[in-house]
Design a protein around this nucleic acid. Structure first.
Lengths: 208, 208
DNA sequence: TAGAAACTTACACTCAGTGTAACTTTTTAG
DNA sequence: CTAAAAAGTTACACTGAGTGTAAGTTTCTA
């Protein structure tokens, strides 16, 4: 299951990380559209083609943590005990919001990162893409949890509305941050309001 | 407000329509990524650059009706009488679903169009972009309707969840269509379930 | 230690999208 | 009616993302 840690795999990991680091730094410094892949390659001391060998798209150079989120969510749902799957997901989000898990990037440091994303149309679009993927995955996890088919509309609806609420809540947290208000309070307030709606939506389904 | 209909403007409109028609036909026939802009230009008897003079992006060649939706929604909310703005929007959607308004593309003919969209990553992404724009606009319209600031999180949340529900409902309608079931029934069922959640979310706000 | 496997690189290509300057058509004014 | 100007089209040249291929180079395996 895990890789046989030879020299080759070690170097690969290092190269990948080096490219991603250089790219992220350049993007944050000068904006995503103002840095070409050729430049990233040059700065990382590697051929342009090598960059594309490691990363399918230029956008992948900066987005590298989707898997982490997916894992957190999956674990929370699988190990949910007697809670409903939707409740387990909501509990996870409350925890992450309060503990300030880096995924949520709500502290001052990662704001710079998100500014880079928001200021780039391509990165904004890609972030939305990841969002949709998360909603789809969440839908399947919810359906799995109650042994329903992956395409179950109730699961898809619940997942879509959950993610919607979180995205709006996160947007409002960023606004609060900009306006020198408490981003965490803003986040929780909007998130909880959204959860009320989701809970009403899933009433009468096994997801409640 | 309206254009002074000279020969020039008439020709412009014709050229634009001609290009869009040719492009749409080619995309539907052979897939979005298998048709280059150069090909569209050639087939339309026009220079490649002219295509980009009319359409900012290749994707715009096939998506041409966003404005129509926006107008429908705006009118429904402005002329809502004594209803709440959220209710007015929901009523509009119910009406459109039942009357089979072409915007919803739920009948057999436009299925081909949507198949083209779904089979193309670029068009799928772009469609989502339009979705987000719709949600943002709807949020502002809702806020306007009750004289709250455009950034009001309650409005943004309601709008995002409404659009989410509709998108999931439409997706399920397409599934139903593929499985030879009633797409309209599927659409309405999921949509109404989503509306229940949205209504719970906006309880206690002026949007309810 | 030699050959196989994996990786990197150079190179050549396609296509989206932009900028510019020359050219053509429509409009407008005298 | 006609000439200048305004608007539109075109050819051309360019940047940058992304792909395919074949030839090198490095690491692994036996």
């Amino acid at each position: 299951m895990s890789k046989p840690d030879g020299l080759r795999n070690q170097k690969k990991a290092e190269t990948r990380q080096a490219i991603s680091n250089v790219a992220t730094r350049l993007f944050v410094e000068r904006g995503f559209e103002n840095v070409s892949v050729a430049e990233v390659a040059r700065e990382a001391g590697v051929a342009r083609k090598t960059v594309f060998n490691y990363f399918l798209r230029k956008e992948d150079l900066i987005f590298d943590r989707e898997e982490e989120v997916r894992t957190l969510v999956r674990d929370a749902i699988v190990n949910r005990g007697s809670q409903s799957p939707v409740h387990a997901f909501q509990a996870l989000m409350r925890t992450l919001a309060v503990t300030g898990h880096p995924i949520f990037h709500m502290s001052a440091r990662p704001i710079q990162f998100w500014r880079t994303v928001v200021e780039s149309p391509a990165l904004t679009t890609y972030a939305r893409e990841l969002q949709v993927t998360l909603a789809n995955d969440l839908g399947e996890m919810l359906a799995d949890a109650v042994h329903r088919p992956h395409a179950d509309p109730d699961a898809r609806l619940a997942a879509a509305m959950l993610v919607s609420a979180l995205v709006v809540a996160y947007g409002d947290a960023l606004r609060a941050f900009r306006e020198q208000q408490d981003p965490e309070a803003a986040f929780i307030s909007v998130m909880e309001r959204g959860f009320v709606g989701v809970n009403a939506t899933v009433v009468g389904t096994p997801y409640a």
